[in-house]
């Protein structure tokens, strides 16, 4: 009988800070099993007597982080399961492919990365389409809900609605788990709390849509933005890996605050490399949030010796802000590899 492989970070992993089960299915394993993404999520969900969030990840596709950096891997479906079931109306969301069009490339300057050698020709997945979102109203976020488990922002923010716990799983961290790499797990902290609001304007974004563009803050919460996820834990990629992908975007000529979100990470790397920053395009609201974590226009304008990409990657832990008391784990330390029969 055909078996479906999946990975699971179990509740209580990483010293007890992971509050619920997180399962990841490689899309290529779904194809091998000859089943749909939804069926794959149902099979995996049925293996758990309590709640689990499930993401199907295509490692051959690309997606985009909230601050506009392309990642080489994408969530192509996600689900919430509880007591072995997935709610038929709200428990599963497919994420349809977004085709390459000249209109998209003209409207969304950060997508220039798609034309680089790293990503040219790869399939793009970001947020669900209107057809994918069936049953949801316009106010609903890209969220699946079954029983106690809600998975929001296209599978990157998972909650237990009864225990009221939460964990963030930004895409680069998820990809490391599926690729058997290494992750950092720690408190999200103030810089990342600010950074997740510094977005790019996208039609069908994973999290945000067209309302806020580069240089703006979608949080618009002033000095309080830094507290939004501060105490929740996150599973993220090691900073050297995040630096690599951010540098790829900067080397494509994209400017934080102008084409990319003005997150503390994009700004810190551009500053370290002596690359342009769209200082005049960053809004007053965004500056308030950045200044609350010590990033000021003056600090970004202060003369410094530019570092090479290799130097930034080597010193990424020092240069890239975010994550408090992060501990490094190999995926194999916290992830079980499991198989389920494809009935």
């Amino acid at each position: 009988m055909q078996k479906l492989k999946y990975r699971v970070v179990r509740a209580g992993a990483a010293g007890g800070v992971v509050p619920m089960h997180l399962a990841f299915i490689d899309r290529s394993d779904v194809i091998k099993a000859g089943i749909s993404n939804e069926k794959a999520c149902q099979l995996v969900g049925a293996q758990f007597t309590d709640g689990v969030a499930i993401n199907v990840i295509d490692l051959d596709a690309i997606t985009v982080t909230s601050d506009g950096i392309i990642a080489d891997g994408a969530v192509v479906a996600f689900a919430s399961a509880d007591r072995g079931k997935i709610n038929p109306n709200f428990g599963f969301l497919n994420v349809s492919e977004i085709p390459y069009t000249q209109q998209l490339m003209d409207e969304e300057p950060h997508m220039k990365q798609w034309d680089t050698d790293y990503y040219r020709g790869k399939r793009l997945y970001r947020g669900p389409s209107a057809e994918d979102r069936v049953h949801r109203s316009s106010h609903n976020e890209n969220m699946t809900i079954t029983g106690r488990i809600a998975s929001n922002n296209t599978g990157s923010e998972v909650m237990n609605l009864i225990e009221m716990t939460e964990i963030l799983t930004p895409i680069f961290g998820q990809l490391q788990l599926v690729r058997d790499g290494a992750v950092l797990i720690g408190k999200t902290g103030p810089e990342m709390s600010v950074g997740i609001g510094m977005v790019v304007r996208e039609r069908r974004g994973r999290i945000f849509g067209w309302n806020y563009g580069a240089g703006m803050t979608a949080h618009r919460s002033g000095k309080y933005a830094k507290t939004v996820k501060c105490e929740d834990y996150s599973i993220v990629a090691e900073k050297s890996l995040l630096a690599e992908y951010t540098i790829r975007a900067l080397e494509a000529g994209l400017v934080p605050g102008l084409h990319l979100g003005c997150s503390p990470v994009t700004l810190s790397i551009a500053k370290a490399m002596g690359l342009p920053i769209g200082l005049d395009n960053i809004t007053d609201d965004a500056w308030i949030e950045l200044e609350s974590v010590g990033i000021t226009k003056e600090s970004l304008q202060k003369p410094s010796t530019p570092l090479s990409r290799e130097e930034v990657i080597a010193r990424a832990d020092e240069i890239l802000p975010g994550i408090e008391d992060g501990k490094r784990y190999l995926a194999s330390d916290i992830c079980d590899i499991c198989y389920v029969d494809c009935l």
């Binding site: 509880d82 007591r83 079931k85 969220m143 029983g147 106690r148 809600a150 609605l161 009864i162």
Partner: peptide
């Protein structure tokens, strides 16, 4: 407000 639905 996100709350658990009928499943619970």
């Amino acid at each position: 407000v996100t709350s658990a639905g009928e499943d619970i």
